[in-house]
Every structure is written in C-alpha cells, then in structure tokens.
Design a protein around this nucleic acid. Structure first.
Length: 580
RNA sequence: GGUCCGGUAGUGUAGCGGUUAGCAUAUCUGCCUGUCACGCAGAAGGUCGCGGGUUCAAAUCCCGUCCGGACCGCCA
C-alpha cells in the first residue's frame, strides 16, 4: 500500500515513472470506452486515465464520487494540446486500480460547497472538510501556529499549559460550569482565558510564557465569535508597554511573512481609544479606508436646528451620492446602533438640498468648507450624547464600506494598535464603576492618584488592542504588580477586601510574594486566521464549529443526559417552565 | 431578550391565489476512446419546515411555531 507521494508533490522528477497514489475520487468522466478519474488528496488533484483494454478497467468502472482508491500507473505528460499548467500538464495512465472503500452518494456536491447551506455543510462537516478551500484554511492555520511557535521559541518564550477545569476568573463573560462528582454541589469553571495563571507564571519567575489556549465563554455567538475558541496567550516579565508592543509587532509581521508572504510595515500605527471612537465611531476601526467623521458640534450649537443645537456631539460623515432607499437603509443601521435618527443633506451647488436642508442655510458655507463634500454627495449626521452618536455613525461608516466597496484601493491588511483605554467605565444600569479591560490592568502611573476621586473616569489604562481590518484580533495590558494599586483598583470598582479575597484570594496572596512588573496580550487566534484567509466567518477556519445557537450540528451537542449521570453529579435540571 | 432576512426533489434555485410545482446539477439506466463542470437519450426523485386561519381554491395571503443566518443587547 506504499504510496509514492502525495499527489501535489508529484513533479517532473516522477515523469514517466510508475507511481502509486491514494485518495478520493473527485470526479469521474466516463467516455464509454475510456474513463477519466480525478484523484484527490489534501495536497492536490491529478487526472487518471483508464484504458478499456487495461487490467484496471473493471475496477475503475466501479468507482464513484468520494470512493477511496489506490491507483498505480505511469505518471506522464498529457498530449501537448491538453496541458493546462502545473499538475494539469500531467496525468497517470492506470495499470492497476484498487477500490479501498466505497462511499454513499454525498449529500452535497463537494465542488459546489461554497453555495451549499452552511447547516448542511456543518452536519456533514467531515465531507465539507474534504473541500480544498477548507483544507487550505486549516493548513494556513497550521502554518500560522508553526510560525508563532518558531518565533516565540527563538525569543525565549516558554510554553506552559494551564488547567481547563478551574475556578471562574473574572473576565466578565458567563462561565461554562462543570459539576464535580467528587465534590457534589460544587463546580469547576472552564477558563474564559488563562489570565490569572499566566500572571502566576510571571510571579513564579518563568519570565516569558505563551500558550495556544482553548477558552470558553457562555455568551451569544456571532460570525466572529464561538463559545469555545483559541487564544494565543502571552505574558512577559520586566517589561513596559512599549516592550510588549515591539515584540508583538515583530511576531505579527513574522506570521504574515511566513504564512502569506505579506510584509506588514513596522511599527504599527497607534491610535488612542478616544480618537478611534471620535473619528471612526469604533474601538476597532477598519482603517483600510479613511472616511473619518468631521466634528460640527460647535457649528450647530445654539442654532436653528433644535436637534443639533444643544447636542453634546454632532458628527458628520461624507458619503457618496445616495438614493432615498439607501439613506433609509442607513438610517435603519443608525437606529439599530442607538441613534435616534440619521439626518442627511445632499450637496446641491453651493448649498444643500433634501433632508435637513431648510435648517442649515446660515451655516451652509462653513459646512461645505469643513466637510469638503463634493457636488452631489451626501452628508450623514449623528447627534446626541457623544458615545451614542459616534457609535451609531461608526456603524453607518461600515455599512457604507460594504455598500460601496470602500476598501478597494486600500491595503489588503491594515493593522494598528488602539491604546489608552479608560481604566474605568461607568455602568449606567448598575449605577457603578467597573473595569473596562479587566481588574488586573495597570493604570498609567501618572493617573494612579485619581483613584477614588471624581475624576477616576479619566484614568488611562496601560491597555492595548490589536485591530486588523476592523476586527479586534488581540488585546492586552501591563498588569498591576503592586498590591497597594490592586487594592485601590478593587476599591474603585466597589469590591470590598472580602469580596476580592473570596473571588481570587489565591491571586491576591501571590501578588504579595514578589511580583515582577509584567504584561502581556492574547490574540483571538481564530479571528486572526479568519481575516488572514479572507473568510467571512470564524466557522470557516475552525474544523468543527458551533452554529448560531451554540450547537454542533454534526455531533448534536449539547444534548440531554440520562438521569443516573446527573444523579451521580448531584445535579438536577429544572423543567422548561421554571427556567425563565 | 430584541430587529431584520430566509426555509420548495439529495443539493442549488424559479414560481408568490387556480401550473401535472418548473429549471440546473447530483443519482440510476443506455450510448459514447481525449474528456476535464465531458456529451447525448431516458428514468426515478417533492407531505413546497410544521400547525392553524382566510378562500370555491394556498407553495403563494394572514397568525403562530420550529429551524437557519446577520446584527443589537451580551461578549473587558
């Protein structure tokens, strides 16, 4: 059964040799006397010719789509008129064909997989994964892992595995819980991230750590979010913010170079959280195109248009000429993202028409000058409380991107740092301050004094996100290594000493035993691979993903379990009516 | 929890008050020796997601429900 080579590795050196190949029947073209087969493995596809007088003919005649076959024959150039470049210049003239296994007729045609409903693909994922597109994506992912390992190893990072059955770490998301049979009524939590463990490794003196860590968050899914996902988790001791960023930039550039042969320009641009929000309406702005907002708050202040006159912020986005239908659609986007509405104007000569034009007569000239809106183009406005206004207009900006392909002409990949996040955020619903990143994020040293004062909302965190084409592909921070600062942080978010002890006392203890200054980052690895491979969904780069409802449509998980299994765990389920 | 879009042979789609529910492809049969999305001829294959309603008549309209997807909330 020894095969000569993977199909894609056949080359001129094999020319006119007898080769043995194994794979799946990709396609069969039966010309009556003559049979052509396409044999596929993970590396490529080769045409096989079976002649009627060949001893292989009877067996080859049995082959159908997705049968597993072994082919022995001469690897040779095709007739000159039929060469198509690469492996398609060659074919194998079969001398022996062996059916290694039959296959049921596939539920969908593999080479039309792109247009097959995703739930069908997921139900038969093992067939979907045979498609060259899926194999390319998973092989790209594998190459990225190899590049990362190679780089981090060279840079002195040590790979350490942290537990999957652990105690809930305060990352903010819901935990997946695992009942403990040996400790009835008690539960492990699956890690949302290895955050505390990697910090403990720094305290333990491992200096530089990394791990491709499986993480779990029990929240609703999205096209770029799965309940179980992979982080590239890293932590470094005796570093300041710039040290972390510098290593990260070289690592990312190395991965892009190795995997895609793309050169990322270094250093990566940095933008503050405030600027990202203020100019692009997002903390993960897609900077492959500009379309920054223009601030016209002051222009309208106290003016005749009441909706803008006293607004905290009035932002405007220059859009191409829009139809009424397009404006309505964009307004729907704005409203879904928290805006009351979407005011608009069309440039008409030296003034404006449509929308709110009857209110802007007195400021028309300044509006033209400040926005530079071209003839016929549209201005889109969001006004109100600053964060709400910019967020809504940010969503409109992305809708315009998709509507008008605004990224064409820009770089294929744009990566940047978003920096200087606020340390604390006021939660209106709970009427309390909370952490924006996580409670171990170090504040900017100059801002520590603001803890507990009225201005604690101004404290800047030493936190940073990596943003690629509008996706957050990484996030990290310098951590608090001083027990005093940690205590002030807990106090600021309303944790009492007792509450902090109860939640992560072991970590509070550890902090007091000689914690080095340290910081790190975690990459959303699936998301990064999604963007690198140009996929529209994270599911395209995960072998066995969950659907929108968190279900594995192939394995049919989650599923009920038998009563004895629950009893052993000391767990009972509520009837559906009581769950609400 | 919410908004929007969708569900018709295995797959992908058309049909949007009266059709024998159409087309493509896959499948099966026959023919075919240079095909490469092989071709040609034929066959089989459908509870139009499910339930209810409106109507003389429902794939088509209405309500509910289930399922799938995108987004908001949520996810630091």
């Amino acid at each position: 059964m020894k095969r000569t080579a993977l199909i894609g590795h056949l080359n001129t050196e094999h020319e006119n040799q007898i080769v043995t190949l194994q794979g799946w029947v990709n396609r069969r073209r039966d010309l009556g006397g003559l049979i052509f087969l396409e044999l596929r493995d993970r590396s490529g596809i080769i045409q096989v010719q079976v002649e009627p007088e060949s001893a292989a003919f009877a067996e080859a005649d049995q082959l159908r789509a997705e049968y597993v076959a072994e082919i022995e024959g001469q690897f040779q150039l095709r007739p000159e008129s039929q060469r198509k470049g690469g492996l398609a210049d060659y074919e194998v003239i079969a001398s022996r064909v062996k059916v290694l296994n039959t296959a049921k007729t596939p539920p969908f045609e593999l080479d039309k997989g792109e247009s097959v409903a995703e739930d069908i693909r997921l139900k038969y994922r093992y067939l979907d994964l045979r498609r060259p597109e899926m194999q390319r994506a998973l092989m790209l992912r594998s190459r990225a892992v190899a590049a990362i390992t190679e780089f981090l190893d060279t840079e002195g990072f040590i790979q350490v595995e942290t537990p999957m059955l652990t105690k809930s770490t305060p990352e903010g998301a819901r935990d997946f819980l695992v009942p403990s049979r040996l400790n009835p009524g008690e539960f492990y939590a699956l890690p949302q991230s290895p955050q505390l463990f990697k910090q403990l490794l720094m305290i333990a003196g491992y200096d530089r750590y990394y791990q491709l860590a499986r993480c779990f968050r029990d929240e609703d899914l999205r096209a770029d979010r799965q309940p179980d996902f992979t982080q590239l988790d890293m932590e470094m001791s005796f570093v300041e913010q710039d040290d972390v960023l510098e290593v990260q930039e070289r690592l990312m550039a190395h991965v892009f170079k190795k995997v895609l042969n793309v050169e990322l320009p270094l250093p990566f641009p940095r933008i503050s959280y405030f600027d990202a929000m203020d100019r692009y309406g997002s903390d993960k702005p897609d900077l492959r195109f500009d379309s920054a907002f223009v601030d016209v708050t002051e222009l309208f202040r106290g003016g005749e248009f009441k909706a803008f006159a006293s607004a905290q912020a009035v932002k405007v986005l220059v859009a191409p000429e829009l139809s009424r239908k397009q404006i309505d659609e964009l307004e729907r986007v704005a409203k879904q993202n928290g805006a009351g509405g979407l005011a608009w104007l069309k440039r008409d000569g030296e003034g404006f028409s449509g929308g709110i034009s009857k209110f802007v007569g007195s400021v028309a000239a300044q509006l033209l000058e400040q926005t530079g809106v071209p003839q016929g183009a549209t201005l889109l406005f969001a006004a109100g409380e600053w964060k709400k206004a910019v967020t809504a207009l940010g969503a409109v900006r992305l809708a315009l991107r998709d509507l008008f392909d605004l990224t064409t002409g820009g770089p294929q990949f744009h990566i940047s740092w978003v920096m200087d996040f606020p340390q604390l955020e006021y939660d209106e619903d709970r009427a309390a301050w909370t952490y924006m990143h996580h409670p171990f994020t170090a504040p900017h040293p100059e801002d520590v004094a603001l803890f507990g004062t009225e201005r604690q909302g101004e404290i800047r965190a030493q936190a940073y996100d990596l943003v690629l084409n509008g996706f957050e592909v990484g996030g990290g921070s310098i951590r608090i290594h001083s027990p005093e600062v940690q205590t002030r942080m807990f106090a600021a978010i309303g944790f009492t000493e007792e509450q902090a002890r109860e939640k992560f006392g072991f970590f509070m203890d550890a902090l007091e035993y000689g914690t080095p200054p340290h910081g790190g980052i975690a990459w959303g690895f699936d998301r990064l691979i999604m963007v690198m491979s140009g996929a529209a969904s994270i599911r395209e780069v995960i072998a066995f993903p969950k659907n929108n409802r968190g279900a594995d449509l192939m394995a049919l998980a989650p599923s009920p379990v038998e009563a004895p299994q629950l009893a052993e765990l000391g767990v009972a389920t509520l009837p559906a009516v009581e769950r609400a």
